[in-house]
């Protein structure tokens, strides 16, 4: 094997992977754009076409996840909020602690933990659901009756998951902050109740818009990856778990990368 061939082999693999990944991202963007285009061209926000699918998805993704999110919020409140407030005198001013809590809980841990919950619960459920529908001919039967699956099955799932991601992050953040402040105020210093007002003051519209955009992007990406993988199931039942695993891994990777890119864009 010549040096050029070895060089080609060494550089070829990362190149092929890069092209593969770029094409995959283009596929995902096209897939979700077409789904949303079909949905918005026919539907009002809650139309009879997809109302039940949208509401059912919000209930499954958002409402049904509340016990888990509550537990995680309380744990995070105890681990992070309580401890950070407890050592506020050592670290410096209370304003710094408020900023730190917003950065850690609201803009980092909250969206990230909510995304992990949604990937493991909703993302996997969407892949299995759509994969089995495809496998059993349910999607073909719908299409044969003139039902556009983009606006009947895909877009409602993407929109609902994005809404739910935002809603459960808000819920998680509130629980995590309030529980930590409450414990700290009850057991360390009652003056720590003042952190509630300070955090509200420090949570500027700019930070709030970052919070909203980040969560909507996370939910959108997770649902898009799940729907795309679900519809890639062809004929064999073994493809369903394969696509589910692929969806979870890809969603996690996207969430990490998007989080890093947003952090880079905001803070650097």
């Amino acid at each position: 094997m010549s040096v050029i061939q070895i060089a080609n082999t060494v550089t070829g693999w990362p190149g092929r992977r890069l092209i593969h990944n770029v094409l995959y991202i283009i596929n995902l963007v096209t897939f979700s754009t077409l789904a949303l285009r079909d949905w918005f061209s026919k539907n009002k926000l809650f139309d009879s076409r997809s109302y039940s699918t949208t509401v059912a998805q919000i209930i499954f993704t958002g409402v049904d996840a509340l016990p888990t999110i509550t537990f995680l919020g309380l744990a995070t409140g105890f681990i992070f909020t309580f401890r950070l407030i407890s050592i506020s005198n050592t670290l410096g001013g209370t304003d710094d602690i408020s900023d730190l809590l917003i950065t850690v809980i609201c803009l980092s841990a909250g969206p990230f933990l909510a995304a992990i919950i949604i990937i493991s619960r909703t993302g996997s459920a969407i892949v299995v659901d759509l994969g089995n529908m495809k496998l059993h001919g349910e999607i073909e039967a719908l299409e044969n009756m003139g039902v556009n699956i983009n606006d009947y099955l895909i877009a409602p799932r993407i929109i609902s998951t994005a809404i739910s991601q935002l809603a459960i992050t808000v819920y998680f953040t509130v629980i995590a902050l309030l529980s930590g402040i409450l414990i700290s105020a009850l057991f360390v210093n009652p003056a720590h109740f003042a952190f509630i007002a300070r955090i509200i003051d420090s949570f500027t519209p700019y930070l709030m818009s970052i919070f909203v955009i980040k969560n909507i992007i996370f939910g959108y990406v997770i649902a898009t990856v799940a729907c795309y993988n679900g519809l890639r199931v062809q004929k064999s039942a073994t493809e369903v778990p394969q696509r589910t695993t692929a969806s979870i891994v890809q969603s996690l990777s996207f969430v990490f990368v998007i989080d890093a890119l947003l952090t880079f864009a905001i803070y650097i």
Binding site: N132, M133, H136, G137, E140, A141, L142, N144
Partner: peptide, 11 residues
């Protein structure tokens, strides 16, 4: 409307 013998319903 086309139906084959095993046309699937929404499960």
């Amino acid at each position: 409307a086309y139906l084959h013998e095993d046309t699937a319903l929404l499960s």
